Simulated scan of single mutants.
Amino acid sequence: MQFFAFLSLLTAVRAAVVPAVGSSGHFHSPVPLDAVPQGKNITINGVLTYVSLPKGRFDPTVAVLLLTGELAPSSSSSQGSGADQWAAAGFATYAPDYLNGDALPTGGNVTTWAVNHGEAQTTPPLLAVISALKSHGVKQIATTGYCFGGLYTTRLVQNNTITVGTMAHPSSLNVPTDFELVKAQSHVPVEINNAELDTGFTPPLAVETDGVLGDGQYAPGYLRRQFDGVGHGFAVSLALSDPVQVAAKQGAFDTSLAFFKKHLK
């Protein structure tokens, strides 16, 4: 499967590279959660995956694929809370460990870590889980990616592998090249939640993305929402004592949820 067949057709010379922001670049650090994980870790097509299912009836032909950032393994109980939130909204949710059991440790060097976590290493486990879901009757995959996961959401959008994609404070992208590729060959709706204080996907880069996909230029559907007063990582971690952070995290989830519901058939 030539997952990146068309990438060589576009040049990245004039593109700005969105950095993979390390732990020191996050506006706030993840905090331990007291909630008991509602899902469980299972192996899907050889890939450890945190799976959380709704308590009530749900459509088994629709799945949310949650792609975590570089700081947290998808299969950890702390990251399970994100998948559990999507399950509580009525979606069977799958968070594959596409980092191959080697998330960036807190305080780790993201540049060194990235050497062994390029697309050649992380794409195969991701595609393995997607293939398994489709072979078991999943017909629509709504993908939400955070930080590093925003890159892979974008790749899945570019290649029309999923039904709808959202992302928050994405990293490791080329702007505007990656979104020009989306515009050129995709039919997948895209939504982005960005942060005013992000040191990676900065507001100017967000506006540049609007210049490619906004104002009706991207027919499948495009939405971007900026959250002020917060920085990189705001959609996955927060200081519970800060109402701005609490509202931003919930707002990003609500925005993505509404976008999924609008574009899932």
Rank of each mutant, 00 (worst) to 15 (best):
Q2E: 10
F3R: 02
L7M: 11
S8V: 05
S8Y: 03
L9T: 10
L10S: 15
A16K: 12
P19T: 05
V21M: 12
S24C: 09
F27S: 03
F27T: 00
S29H: 15
P37W: 11
Q38N: 08
K40Y: 11
N45W: 01
V47P: 00
V51F: 13
K55E: 13
R57A: 14
P60W: 09
V64K: 09
T68C: 05
E70R: 06
S76P: 01
S77W: 11
S81V: 11
G82K: 09
G82W: 06
D84N: 04
Q85P: 02
W86F: 14
A89T: 12
G90R: 11
A92S: 12
A92L: 00
Y94K: 06
A95M: 12
P96D: 04
N100H: 08
G107N: 13
N109D: 15
T112K: 14
N116M: 14
N116G: 13
H117K: 06
G118P: 08
P125R: 03
K134S: 07
S135C: 04
H136R: 11
V138I: 12
A142L: 06
T143K: 03
Y146L: 14
C147H: 04
G149P: 01
G149S: 04
Y152W: 09
Y152H: 01
T153E: 05
N159K: 10
T163G: 03
T166P: 07
M167I: 04
A168Q: 02
H169T: 07
L173P: 07
V175T: 04
P176H: 09
P176N: 05
V182R: 02
H187F: 09
P189H: 07
I192H: 07
N193F: 08
N194S: 10
T199Y: 02
F201Q: 04
T202L: 10
P203I: 05
P204A: 13
E208C: 15
D210T: 08
G211R: 09
V212S: 06
L213T: 08
G216Y: 02
Q217K: 12
P220I: 13
G221E: 05
Y222N: 02
L223N: 10
G231N: 02
H232N: 05
L240P: 06
L240F: 14
S241A: 12
D242N: 15
P243S: 13
P243I: 01
V246K: 15
F260H: 12
K261T: 11
